[in-house]
């Protein structure tokens, strides 16, 4: 687990402003609640963005970073376009999710956190997403037995996609890739190193 620098420990809003993507916008929220009413997954999350923003200002670090709310974001951008104060709410939610993930504070077994990691690791390997390997990795993320069950349940859809030439079983052998995948990997590692340094993560690097 990586830990954040202790310099913000008693001021969570300052910590968010410094370490969370677009976090400097949080203080601009006027608590109107339009974001809460605009979210397609609104009924399913613990706290609406509006509540999250107020909780940040109230210093509720633990409650915010362990909330499942940020992980319910489908990236539909409804909240962004409707916010009267023009806060980039979607990006702040993404930023909070990433920050909670990097601190190891996201709810245990959060499924969107798990697939987000699988997706990123998949794309960094070759520079392009391998949909077959990504799907299989998702099915098997909760172990072998569950993986077989998931794969069996989805086999009809999988075969349909193969038949329509929209899923290629041969991708398991490698599939599409960028020519300069080593350059891409070095570049991504460097970007992570810079960002970790800037945000004060002790475990800088990948």
């Amino acid at each position: 687990m990586t830990t954040a620098t202790p310099k913000y420990r008693n001021n969570f809003l300052k910590e968010v402003e410094a370490n969370v993507e677009e976090g400097h916008w949080v203080k601009m929220c006027m608590q109107c609640g339009v974001c809460a009413g605009s979210c397609p997954l609104g009924p399913h999350w613990q706290h609406s963005p509006q509540k999250i923003f107020m909780m940040i200002r109230a210093g509720k670090r633990e409650e915010v970073l362990t909330s499942d709310s940020m992980w319910m974001c489908t990236s539909c951008y409804n909240c962004i376009v409707r916010c009267p104060r023009k806060l980039p709410i979607t990006h702040i939610m993404h930023g909070l999710a990433n920050y909670a993930h990097r601190l190891g504070m996201a709810p245990k077994g959060q499924p969107t956190e798990a697939i987000a990691k699988l997706f990123w690791d998949n794309l960094v390997k070759t520079g392009r997403v391998n949909e077959l390997k990504f799907s299989l990795a998702m099915y098997f993320k909760d172990g072998f037995v569950q993986g077989i069950k998931n794969a069996m349940a989805m086999q009809g859809i999988g075969l349909g996609l193969v038949k329509a030439k929209r899923l290629n079983p041969m991708e398991i052998l490698g599939g599409h890739a960028c020519k300069d995948k080593s350059g891409i990997q070095k570049m991504v590692a460097k970007a992570r190193e810079i960002e970790d340094r800037r945000k004060g993560f002790s475990g800088a690097g990948a």
Binding site: T112, W120, R128, V129, K179, E195
Partner: peptide, 25 residues
């Protein structure tokens, strides 16, 4: 030799700068 954009789920592990960088490439 274009690469993946990170899609809408790339933020979880990719964070901000790595995501911007893959698109910048």
């Amino acid at each position: 030799d274009w690469n993946c954009c990170g899609a809408s789920i790339g933020y979880g592990e990719g964070g901000e700068l790595p995501r911007l960088v893959i698109n910048a490439r």
